[in-house]
Amino acid sequence: MIYHKECKVCKSEVTLINKTYNLGQCKNCKLIFCLTIYSQDQFIRVYDELYNEENAIYRNHAVVEYDMLLENKKIKVGYHRSRLLKKHILNGKCESVLEVGSGIGLIGSYIRNENKQIKYLGIEIDKESYQKSQFLKLNTINDDFTAIDTLEESFDVIMLWEVIEHLQDLKLFLELAYKKLNKNGKIILSTPNYNKIYNYPKREEDAIFQDKPPVHLNFFTKENITAIFEINHFFKCKATVKKFPYLEIKSKKFYIDFLKSMFNNYNGSTIYLEATKA
């Protein structure tokens, strides 16, 4: 195995904070990330197991949502995501959008249904998900995010939904995204909130409450994700955290967490970021 010896974004010193998953934290930008460096083949196998096998954890995304798209049912993208899409893409000003980690094409289909004039391109590393997006006649390519560097066009918006936590070479992504955005172009994204660990005061040591490496490689807080984008020349960086817990009416913990959230004493599960290219 090969390991990171310094921060993958700002090259500063890192401190080991989680021995179980070999996570380090940068002393400067505060990024938390897996110090182990994995191969591309490992990623492809992992995603296939997560999405495509019969009992896959995320089979809902690959199968249920795909069937919904085939049947032309109403596409549900979630409250926070739909707000960002309306604000930055479906605003009458956006002409082109790139989605990194486009999956089967849920968001691409949603945008097409709302405005066929917007030029959409999706990049998806998982071959089966890519093939499904092709069947839906979406403009997608089967590759990892480094394919951004081969594109001739630039974009008004680049979006990633629960993807940035998977990117091993985070610094390269930030550089390529900045390069391919038009002036005043936007990045919009969502990612798990690392600080949700504090909702579990009796947690076991090293518990992270999200997918372990090599699935998730980067772990974000509202503060460190803003710092990381600002270090890489983005401005107007606004990070917000989902305030309320997901609805689970049969769970006692849901009601406890809901009350905590009413008093701003709950760490939401998801971070949403908006950032602008200077």
Score class of each variant (00 low, 15 high):
residue 10 C to F: 09
residue 11 K to P: 00
residue 13 E to N: 05
residue 14 V to N: 13
residue 23 L to Q: 05
residue 28 N to F: 13
residue 30 K to W: 03
residue 30 K to L: 13
residue 45 R to F: 04
residue 49 E to Y: 14
residue 50 L to M: 11
residue 52 N to V: 12
residue 56 A to M: 10
residue 73 K to Y: 07
residue 75 I to H: 13
residue 78 G to E: 15
residue 80 H to E: 15
residue 85 L to F: 06
residue 86 K to Q: 09
residue 89 I to R: 01
residue 92 G to I: 00
residue 96 S to P: 08
residue 103 G to K: 10
residue 104 I to W: 10
residue 106 L to P: 01
residue 115 N to Y: 07
residue 122 G to T: 08
residue 124 E to G: 00
residue 129 S to H: 13
residue 129 S to E: 15
residue 130 Y to Q: 06
residue 131 Q to M: 12
residue 132 K to I: 14
residue 133 S to T: 12
residue 135 F to E: 13
residue 140 T to C: 04
residue 140 T to L: 01
residue 145 F to Y: 13
residue 148 I to G: 13
residue 149 D to G: 13
residue 149 D to W: 02
residue 151 L to H: 03
residue 152 E to M: 10
residue 153 E to N: 15
residue 160 L to A: 07
residue 161 W to S: 03
residue 162 E to Q: 15
residue 167 L to W: 04
residue 168 Q to A: 03
residue 168 Q to D: 03
residue 174 L to F: 09
residue 175 E to M: 09
residue 181 L to T: 06
residue 196 K to M: 02
residue 203 R to L: 07
residue 203 R to P: 07
residue 205 E to P: 11
residue 207 A to C: 14
residue 209 F to W: 12
residue 212 K to L: 03
residue 215 V to H: 14
residue 220 F to E: 11
residue 224 N to P: 01
residue 227 A to T: 08
residue 231 I to D: 10
residue 235 F to V: 00
residue 236 K to W: 01
residue 236 K to E: 10
residue 237 C to H: 02
residue 238 K to R: 06
residue 239 A to F: 12
residue 240 T to Q: 11
residue 242 K to E: 15
residue 249 I to W: 11
residue 249 I to C: 08
residue 255 Y to K: 07
residue 260 K to E: 10
residue 262 M to N: 02
residue 266 Y to P: 02
residue 274 E to L: 00
residue 275 A to M: 08
residue 277 K to M: 08
residue 277 K to G: 06
